[in-house]
C-alpha cells in the first residue's frame, strides 16, 4: 500500500476560527446599530453606510491589484472599517466627503503601514480625525433624528456650552434608544449594547477594556463633572456621545489594542481618563475618538512592557 502521508507540526487539530468569521461576527454585531441609524436618520444614514463601505472595499481591492498583493477583501476587514467610519459621521456629512474618508482610512492609515494587523491607529478613527481637520463645518453640523435636516446640538454639546438646563437636555430614554443628535452610529446605546453582547457571546471581544473605559469615564465625570465634587451627571456622559460605540467597537479593535488582559485594562483606563479630560476641560465636547487614537499610539509600548511572567516564575533566564 503506497500512501502519501502529510507531515506537519502539532497540533493537528484547529478550532476552525478564521479572520473572516470574526469579521463577519463584527458586521453582524454592527447591524442593530446600523438599523437604528437608518430608523432615526433615514436615508442619509443608509447612504453614508453604503458609500463608506463601497469606498473602503474598492480602495482595498485597488491597492491589492496595484501592489500585486493577494486580494484581501474577502477577510471583510475593509467592510468593517467602512461601517465603523460611517457610524462616526454626522448625518449631514456630504457623500463625497464620506467617500474620501473611506479611501483615506484604507490606503493611508491601513495599507501604507502594512495592512491588516500592522496599522498602528484605528483606520476609521484616523480617517475621522483627518475629515474633522479638512471639513470641520460639515463634520460637526448635527441634526435632529428624522427626515428633515433640522439642526440640533448633541447632548454633550449642550453640556459643554453650559447647558443642562432642563428642557434642553433630551430625556434619558431618548438617549438610550438613540433619538438624539450625534453621529449616525453612536446615538443608540441600546443597539450598541445588543451588538456588544453578541460579540461577547461569540468570544470576539472580552469586556475588560470597555468596562475599564466606561467605568473610568463614569467615575471621572461623576467626580469632576459637576459644580461640586462628586455631583457630575455621569449617566449623561456614559450614554450620550460616542462612548458606547467607542468602548465596545473602536477601542477593542484587535490590531490597535493590547493583547494581554492587563494591557487592555490599562488602555481602557487611559482612554477613559483622556476622554474625561477632553470632555471636561478640552476644546471639544467629545473626546472618545481622540483618546482612542492617542492610546493606539502607546499600544506597542504597553505590550512590550507587559510581557507576562511565565507560569511558575518569570525571572528572565540570563537573557
Amino acid at each position: 500500500m503506497e500512501i502519501n502521508l502529510l507531515a506537519g507540526s502539532s497540533p493537528h487539530l484547529k478550532s476552525g476560527e478564521s479572520t473572516q468569521k470574526i469579521m463577519r461576527d463584527v458586521i453582524i454585531a454592527l447591524l442593530p446599530a446600523a438599523i437604528s441609524s437608518v430608523y432615526f436618520f433615514k436615508v442619509k444614514a443608509a447612504m453614508l453606510i453604503i458609500v463608506t463601505v463601497i469606498a473602503c472595499v474598492t480602495a482595498e481591492y485597488a491597492w491589492c491589484r496595484i501592489t500585486k498583493k493577494e486580494n484581501t477583501i474577502s477577510d471583510m476587514s475593509a467592510a468593517v472599517t467602512g461601517i465603523l467610519l460611517a457610524f462616526n459621521l454626522s448625518p449631514s456629512v456630504p457623500i463625497w466627503v464620506a467617500a474620501i474618508g473611506g479611501v483615506f482610512a484604507i490606503i493611508i492609515v491601513k495599507q501604507l503601514f502594512g495592512g491588516l494587523g500592522h496599522n498602528f491607529v484605528n483606520p476609521a478613527l484616523a480617517a475621522r480625525a483627518f475629515m474633522m481637520a479638512s471639513w470641520p463645518v460639515q463634520m460637526t453640523a448635527w441634526q435632529k433624528p428624522g427626515w428633515d435636516a433640522v439642526s440640533s446640538a448633541t447632548p454633550l454639546g449642550i453640556i459643554k456650552n453650559g447647558g443642562g438646563i432642563s428642557g434642553q437636555m433630551p430625556e434619558f430614554w431618548d438617549m438610550f434608544l438613540g433619538n438624539i443628535g450625534g453621529t449616525i452610529g453612536e446615538t443608540s446605546a441600546l443597539a450598541i449594547l445588543a451588538g456588544a453582547a453578541y460579540l461577547v457571546i461569540r468570544k470576539v471581544i472580552t469586556l475588560e477594556l470597555p468596562i475599564a473605559f466606561i467605568g473610568t469615564v463614569g467615575f471621572m465625570t461623576w467626580m469632576l463633572g459637576g459644580e461640586a465634587m462628586f455631583t457630575g451627571d455621569f449617566v449623561y456622559h456614559i450614554f450620550a456621545g460616542g462612548l458606547m460605540l467607542g468602548a465596545f467597537f473602536m477601542a477593542t479593535d484587535y490590531t490597535t489594542s493590547p493583547v494581554t488582559f492587563k494591557g487592555r485594562i490599562i488602555m481602557g483606563i487611559g482612554c477613559g481618563l483622556l476622554t474625561s479630560v477632553i470632555r471636561l476641560y478640552g476644546g471639544y465636547p467629545e473626546g472618545v475618538s481622540y483618546s482612542i487614537l492617542l492610546m493606539n499610539l502607546v499600544v506597542p509600548m504597553i505590550d512590550r512592557f507587559l510581557i507576562p511572567r511565565s507560569f511558575g516564575g518569570g525571572a528572565v533566564k540570563n537573557a
Binding site: 502529510l6 493537528h12 484547529k14 478564521s18 479572520t19 476587514s77 495592512g115 505590550d303 511572567r309 511565565s310
Partner: peptide, 29 residues
Amino acid sequence: NQAVETKESVCIRCGKCVAACPMSLMPLY
C-alpha cells in the same frame, strides 16, 4: 478533511493565543 491545513494569513493581533497559553507566553510576538 482532518489533515489538510488552512493557509496561514496575517496575524490580526486578536490576542487569543495569549489568552489560551497555559504558560502565559505571547506566541504572536
